[in-house]
C-alpha cells in the first residue's frame, strides 16, 4: 500500500495506491489515526489508483467505517476501478458506504 492524505475543500482525502492486502493491516491502522485526527465531518477514500484489494482490505475499510462512525465522520469511497470495484460490488459495500465518481 502507498497512500497520501490531501486536505481538499470538501474534506480530507485519502488516496490509496497499488494494493490493499492482509500485509497492510498495521500501517492502515496508523493511516486511520491520521485521517480521523483531522476531525472532519466527511472523509473521502480515493481508490482511483488502487489496483488490487483482497478480503482483508474489505475488513480494513470496515474498521475505518466503524471508527469514523464513532468520530461522527462520514466515509465516502471514490472511483473504485476494475477488480477493486468488482470486489466492492460482490460484498455489497454500496449498502455500507457512500460512493462517488469523479
Amino acid at each position: 500500500m502507498r497512500y497520501e492524505i490531501s486536505d481538499e475543500p470538501g474534506g480530507p482525502t485519502l488516496v490509496l495506491r497499488d494494493q490493499l492486502t492482509f500485509a497492510d493491516r498495521d500501517p492502515f491502522d496508523g493511516v486511520i489515526d491520521k485521517l480521523l485526527a483531522r476531525r472532519a465531518r466527511r472523509v473521502a477514500i480515493d481508490l482511483t489508483q488502487l489496483d488490487y484489494m483482497d478480503s482483508a482490505g474489505l475488513g480494513m475499510l470496515l474498521t475505518l467505517r466503524d471508527r469514523a462512525e464513532r468520530a461522527d465522520t462520514e466515509v465516502v469511497l471514490r472511483n473504485p476501478r476494475s477488480e477493486v470495484r468488482e470486489l466492492l460490488v460482490l460484498a455489497c459495500f454500496d449498502t455500507l458506504f457512500a460512493f462517488e465518481e469523479g
Partner: peptide, 10 residues
C-alpha cells in the same frame, strides 16, 4: 452471482 453483504458485519 455470489454477491451479498459478508456475514457478521451488520
Amino acid at each position: 452471482d455470489g454477491s451479498g453483504l459478508p456475514l457478521g458485519i451488520t
